Amino acid sequence: MYQQSRLEVNGKKQHQFVKNEIGAPTVMQQKGKNTATLKFITPRWFYFLLVISILGWVILTGYWLRNCYSNIYLKITK
């Protein structure tokens, strides 16, 4: 499990649990229906870096299109 992982068993958050040799959580089951949910909470800095990456691709694509258009325009005017 990762630091950003959250484990819920039967709707209750689990803060302390036993991990097996590969790091998977082991929880005690109760009589009846049991539900375990393991969630990964994405860090906020990831969204910031994602926006920067997308903006970079948009700017690079715009620059490339501008250069292509300029080259075509120069060939037409000659």
Rank of each mutant, 00 (worst) to 15 (best):
F17W: 04
F40N: 08
H15I: 09
I52S: 00
W45S: 06
T77A: 14
T37L: 13
R44F: 10
L65A: 13
F40H: 07
I54M: 02
L74A: 12
W64I: 12
E21D: 11
V27G: 03
I59R: 06
P25L: 01
Y2N: 08
L65K: 02
E8D: 11
G11D: 03
G23M: 04
N71S: 12
W64C: 12
E21N: 10
Q4W: 12
I54A: 08
T61A: 15
L74K: 09
I72V: 13
T42K: 04
R6L: 13
Q3P: 14
K13D: 08
V27L: 04
T26Q: 14
Q3F: 10
N67F: 11
G32Q: 07
Q29T: 08
S5Y: 05
F40A: 05
L55W: 04
K12V: 14
I52A: 01
T42M: 08
K33S: 03
T35S: 10
M28Y: 06
F48I: 10
L50K: 02
I41Y: 01
Y63A: 10
N71I: 14
A24P: 01
Q30P: 07
F46N: 00
I76G: 08
L49K: 13
N10I: 02
Q30D: 14
I59C: 12
G23W: 00
K78E: 12
L65N: 08
M28K: 15
N34E: 01
K13P: 15
G23F: 01
I76Y: 05
I52P: 15
N10P: 02
V58P: 13
F48Y: 11
I52T: 07
Q3K: 09
S70W: 09
K78I: 15
A24V: 04
H15E: 09
V58S: 09
Q4L: 09
L60C: 09
W45R: 01
M1V: 11
K31P: 15
Y73V: 05
K75I: 15
L7Y: 00
V18I: 10
I22R: 02
S53E: 13
P43F: 04
Y69M: 12
T26L: 14
Y63H: 00
Y73D: 11
Q14A: 15
W64P: 11
N34A: 02
L65T: 06
Q30E: 15
F40M: 13
N20W: 05
